[in-house]
């Protein structure tokens, strides 16, 4: 799906936990996330802390979208 969106001409950032799959699939902008069942959260944290964690990841995704890339890039 990532490639399909990219092919349509829309910049896309792939947020996922298993980045090697994302690389194999062919995503160009990749942001690693927390865990497979809760990529953008961590149920062990207090809600406020969890929100901060999620916000941090989304901020990274926005950075990725605003960064020119020539090749597949993982935004750690």
């Amino acid at each position: 799906m990532v490639k399909g969106v990219e092919a349509a001409g829309i910049p896309v950032v792939h947020m996922c936990t298993v980045t090697p799959i994302s690389m194999t699939v062919g995503a160009n902008r990749i942001v690693p996330t927390i865990a497979i069942p809760h990529p953008l959260g961590n149920p062990a944290l207090e809600p406020e802390e969890e929100y901060k964690l999620r916000r941090g990841l989304v901020e990274k995704a926005l950075v990725a979208l605003q960064t020119e890339v020539e090749d597949q890039t993982i935004f750690e």
């Binding site: 092919a7 001409g9 829309i10 950032v13 792939h14 947020m15 996922c16």
Partner: peptide, 17 residues
């Protein structure tokens, strides 16, 4: 994606589990 383009979407955040 065609719908997104038609709706004027500039970028996509795609999440996977």
């Amino acid at each position: 994606s065609q719908k997104l383009l038609a709706d004027g979407v500039d970028a996509v955040i795609l999440t996977s589990t």
